[in-house]
Nucleic acid binder design. Structure first.
Lengths: 105, 105
DNA sequence: CGGTATCCCTATTGATACTG
DNA sequence: CAGTATCAATAGGGATACCG
């Protein structure tokens, strides 16, 4: 949980999103690919359980970072794309990646 | 925990550090102030328990993001400062802050 | 002052089976 | 295919008391 002081810190709000496991990888995939299917994400994020992926996508949808496009075909189809808010997180993801690359270990 | 695939993703390594609670605030304080005492941090991070602050500082020290300078005076004194690695995280913190400010809610 | 030592709680994550 | 339901494990975080 996060107390009320945290709630008003812009850094903490970003950390809350980027800190939960798998989210940074989901964002990385969507930044690179524009659109991804549920299965594609599950394949790319080796080891993620379907319920966890579902939870994470719902959280990102609730935060209006990803948009879910669902088509009731047979078999059904779902596509996830970044919103403008989501694409704007690219700068942070890149800063994180740059730091991680510069200081491996 | 983090699996082996995660370990090699630079974004994930950053997320591991920035994702745990209080770390982004600790870094923010140290980016603004050069040097902080244990008590100063505890006062600034309203609501943090001393063991949690201690854990977080040890983790940041293990990651060589902060340096601990301890003086055996009476009473004893400890100062925490960012290393070069730590200061380099400033770019990420700023990107997170900018995103959080641009998209409040 | 600058922490440790304990104990506890619950949020997060995951494995597995199943459904429209 | 795209998820949900259920149940279990554990790690993260916190409250409190105490120590050198």
């Amino acid at each position: 949980m996060v107390n009320s002081a945290d709630t008003f810190c812009p850094v903490t709000r970003s950390a809350k999103i980027l800190g939960s496991r798998w989210t940074s990888q989901i964002l990385r995939d969507l930044l690179l690919n524009d659109s991804r299917r549920f299965q594609q994400l599950q394949t790319s994020l080796v080891g993620i359980a379907p319920n966890t992926l579902s939870d994470r996508l719902k959280m990102l949808e609730a935060e209006r970072i990803v948009e879910r496009r669902f088509y009731e075909d047979h078999p059904p189809r779902a596509e996830y794309v970044l919103t403008e808010r989501g694409r704007a997180l690219g700068a942070t993801i890149r800063a994180m990646r740059d730091w991680g690359n510069k200081y491996p270990d």
